[in-house]
């Protein structure tokens, strides 16, 4: 079982595209990536209950790492923790990494069987290649 990944965004299209970009790194490999993005009516926004459901769906026992865009995505992810069962909440990490770069790093190591701490650390290093290139 691998660590699950959850993407929280204001925009369903943005989340789906970020996941598509990240999955390019995983040809032929399985990884659970759940998305909680946009409002019910297809608009821009986040829903803490949807985030909570996505975390539960992505958690296969090894925990989850949650990547998010900005503003209410962060507040909704934090609020979502309140609605999780204790055991699931304890193995959920909210990552401060930038969404796209963090997600790409996270999926690669998660699919390789890394622990939740390793996946979160890799996401957190997501900006390093860009920073090195532009130095």
């Amino acid at each position: 079982m691998t660590v699950g990944i959850v993407v929280v965004s204001h925009s369903r299209a943005l989340a789906d595209a970020a996941v598509e970009l990240a999955r390019q790194m995983l040809p032929g490999r399985e990884l659970v990536v759940e998305v909680a993005a946009g409002t019910e009516d297809g608009g821009l926004g986040t829903d803490a209950m949807a985030v909570s459901a996505a975390i539960e769906a992505a958690d296969g026992g090894e925990g989850t790492v949650v990547l998010m865009d900005l503003g209410s995505a962060v507040l909704s992810a934090e609020t979502a923790l309140e609605f999780l069962p204790d055991d699931v909440r304890e193995r959920t990490t909210l990552s401060a990494a930038p969404l796209v770069e963090g997600l790409v790093g996270a999926v690669v190591v998660a699919a390789g069987g890394a622990t939740r701490e390793q996946v979160a650390a890799e996401a957190g290093r997501g900006l390093a290649p860009k920073e090195a290139q532009l130095r």
Partner: peptide, 14 residues
């Protein structure tokens, strides 16, 4: 927290 969409959802919800 579910229906507002923006930051006021988690804030008023909390």
């Amino acid at each position: 927290v579910s229906k507002v969409g923006g930051a006021s959802g988690p804030l008023y919800g909390t």
